[in-house]
Design a protein around this nucleic acid. Structure first.
Length: 471
DNA sequence: ATGTCC
C-alpha cells in the first residue's frame, strides 16, 4: 500500500496523507489492498457516514469540510445571480435619453443588492451604471456605481462686484496663472499649498492610501482633463438668494474631481469587486459590488469618502488662489459632489445611494447644474423628490460620445457657437463642443419637480484642458 | 476620468 494507489483514487493535498495513514492501519490489521481501496471510495462518496468514529473518521471529517466549503462557495456565487426582471424605477426626460443608458439602468436594477433607482434627464451610457443613474443598494457599494472620478464635483463663488468689473483679458490671465489642467498635471513644487485634507488620519489607515498620498499632495488644487473646467462668468439672481440681493455678479464656477488619486482608488477596488464575483452575469460585470460589512467594502468606503473630501479641497484651492489674486472675498459659495455614494434612508431602510453623475437634491439642498462651455449653468435648490431618491441631473449630459463628436463636429461650428454667446475659450477639445451636449434648457425643464432654479450663470472666460484636438 | 500597475 502506497501513495500511488491513493492518489489514483483522486485524493490530493491534505486528504492524501490522511487517506494513506488510514489505509496503512487497515493493512496492518490484515485487510487486503483491493478491499481497502473499496473502503476509501466509500468514504469519498459519503464522508458524513464515517464521521462518528473509526479509522476513517479524520479523513471523513476533512472531506466533509471540503464539501461544505464548496457548497458555501456555490451559495455565494448563487447570491450574485441577477433577477430576471429589473425593479421598477422612474425616468426623467425619457425623450432625451438614448436606449443604451436605459439598458444599463435595467441591468443595474436586476442586481440582487438593488432596492431602488432613478434615471436623470442628462443620462447617457457610461461604464457600469449609466451617467445620470441613481441606485440604492442594501449593504453593498459598487465602485463603478460611483465612477472613476470619485467625488467629481462643482463649486461656485459669487463675488460682491459687478460682472463687468473683470475684463476678458484679466480673467484669461488669472486662469492661466492660477489653474492647472491636464492628465498627470501637478502644481510646481514652490507653488504647492497645504490643506487640512492632506493631514486626514485616513491616509495612514491603508497601504493604498499611504502610497497615493504624495500624488494627492502634488496634484491638489488642479483641474484635470476631459469635461473639467474653471470659468469666470455672470451670475444673475432674479430674486434675493444665497444671502445676496437680486442682481448680476461676477462669479467663478469650477468642475473638478479627485484626479489621479481617486482614479487609482477606483481602479483598485473595481478589480477587488470583480474578483469577488467571478460568476457574475457578463452584463453586470462592471457593476460588481463590495459588501459594505466586508473588509474590502469598509476600505472602499473610507477611501471613497477621503477622495470626496479631497475633490472638494481641490475646488477650495482653485477658488482660494483666484479669489486671492482678485483681491476679493466671495460673498457666497455653493458646492456639491455628483459622483459619490451616501448612506440614506429610503422607504424606511438605510441604503447606500450611488449617484453617478447626479446632483444630491434633498429638500432645501443647494446644487449646481452646469450646461456646456458656452451655455448657462444653474444654481438649484432640491425639492426632495423621493422617487428620484432626492436627486437631479449633474449637467446637460452628452448627446454625442467623444468619438462621435470628433467625427461629426468642425472647429468652425464651435467657434461660431462661442462667438455667438460672447464666450472666450482657453483650451477645450472638440469632444467638449457645446453641440456634443444636450440642450441644458431641455434638461432643466424635464426636472422641474426635482429642483427649483435660483440663479443662472453665464460663462464668459472658460479654461479647459487642451484635449487631443484643440479648437 | 486617468498618464496605461499597486
Amino acid at each position: 500500500m502506497n501513495g500511488k494507489h491513493i492518489r489514483r483514487l483522486g485524493f490530493e493535498k491534505k486528504a492524501l496523507p490522511l487517506a494513506l495513514a488510514a489505509a496503512q492501519t487497515r493493512e496492518a490489521a490484515g485487510v487486503a489492498v483491493p478491499e481497502i481501496l473499496d473502503e476509501l471510495q466509500a468514504v469519498q462518496a459519503d464522508p458524513a457516514a464515517y464521521l462518528a468514529g473509526g479509522v476513517y473518521a479524520e479523513l471523513a471529517a476533512h472531506l466533509h469540510d471540503l464539501g461544505l466549503g464548496k457548497r458555501a462557495a456555490e451559495q455565494v456565487q448563487a447570491s450574485a445571480r441577477l433577477h430576471a426582471a429589473p425593479l421598477p424605477y422612474r425616468v426623467w426626460g425619457e425623450d432625451l435619453i438614448e436606449p443604451g443608458a436605459r439598458e444599463q439602468m435595467d441591468v443595474a436594477m436586476r442586481l440582487p443588492i438593488a432596492r431602488a433607482g432613478a434615471l436623470m434627464p442628462d443620462a447617457h451610457v457610461g461604464y457600469g451604471l449609466p451617467i445620470g443613474g441613481v441606485l440604492a443598494a442594501e449593504n453593498a457599494v459598487i465602485p463603478y456605481g460611483v465612477g472613476v472620478d470619485i467625488g467629481c464635483s462643482m463649486m461656485l463663488s459669487v463675488f460682491p462686484q459687478p460682472a463687468t468689473s473683470l475684463s476678458t483679458d484679466e480673467a484669461r490671465a488669472l486662469l492661466m496663472k492660477h489653474t492647472r489642467f491636464g492628465a498627470g498635471v501637478a502644481f510646481e513644487k514652490r507653488e504647492r499649498l497645504d490643506h487640512e485634507v492632506l493631514h486626514d488620519p485616513a491616509w495612514k489607515d491603508q497601504a493604498l492610501l499611504r502610497h497615493l498620498h504624495p500624488k494627492a499632495a502634488e496634484q491638489i488644487g488642479t483641474s484635470g482633463s476631459g469635461n473639467h473646467f474653471a470659468e469666470f462668468g455672470t451670475l444673475t439672481l432674479r430674486a434675493p438668494e444665497l444671502g445676496l440681493e437680486a442682481g448680476e455678479y461676477l462669479a467663478l464656477l469650477s468642475h473638478s474631481g479627485s484626479r489621479g488619486f481617486g482614479a487609482q482608488v477606483a481602479g483598485h477596488f473595481t478589480a477587488l469587486a470583480q474578483k469577488r464575483w467571478p460568476g457574475l452575469d457578463r452584463a453586470a460585470q462592471k457593476l460588481a459590488w463590495l459588501p459594505l460589512d466586508s473588509e474590502d467594502g469598509q476600505a472602499y468606503w473610507q477611501a471613497m469618502n477621503l477622495a470626496g473630501r479631497y475633490a472638494l479641497a481641490n475646488h477650495e484651492q482653485i477658488h482660494a488662489r483666484l479669489g486671492r489674486a482678485l483681491g476679493v472675498r466671495a460673498a457666497a459659495q455653493v458646492s456639491n459632489s455628483h459622483n459619490l455614494a451616501w448612506k440614506q434612508r429610503v422607504n424606511g431602510a438605510e441604503l447606500i445611494v450611488h449617484r453617478k453623475g447626479a446632483t444630491p437634491a434633498a429638500a432645501g439642498q443647494l446644487g449646481l447644474i452646469p450646461g456646456s462651455m458656452a451655455d448657462p449653468g444653474f444654481v438649484v435648490r432640491g425639492t426632495g423628490n423621493s422617487a428620484a431618491l432626492d436627486s437631479a441631473s449633474h449637467g446637460a449630459g452628452r448627446q454625442l460620445g467623444r468619438k462621435a463628436a470628433a467625427n461629426t463636429l468642425a472647429r468652425r461650428d464651435v467657434q461660431a457657437y462661442l462667438e455667438g454667446r460672447g464666450v472666450t475659450l482657453i483650451g477645450g477639445g472638440i469632444d467638449e463642443a457645446p453641440q456634443a451636449y444636450k440642450r441644458i434648457e431641455d434638461v432643466i425643464a424635464r426636472q422641474a419637480d426635482l429642483v427649483d432654479v435660483l440663479a443662472e450663470f453665464r460663462p464668459r472666460v472658460v479654461r479647459m484642458d487642451t484635449g487631443s484636438e484643440d479648437i
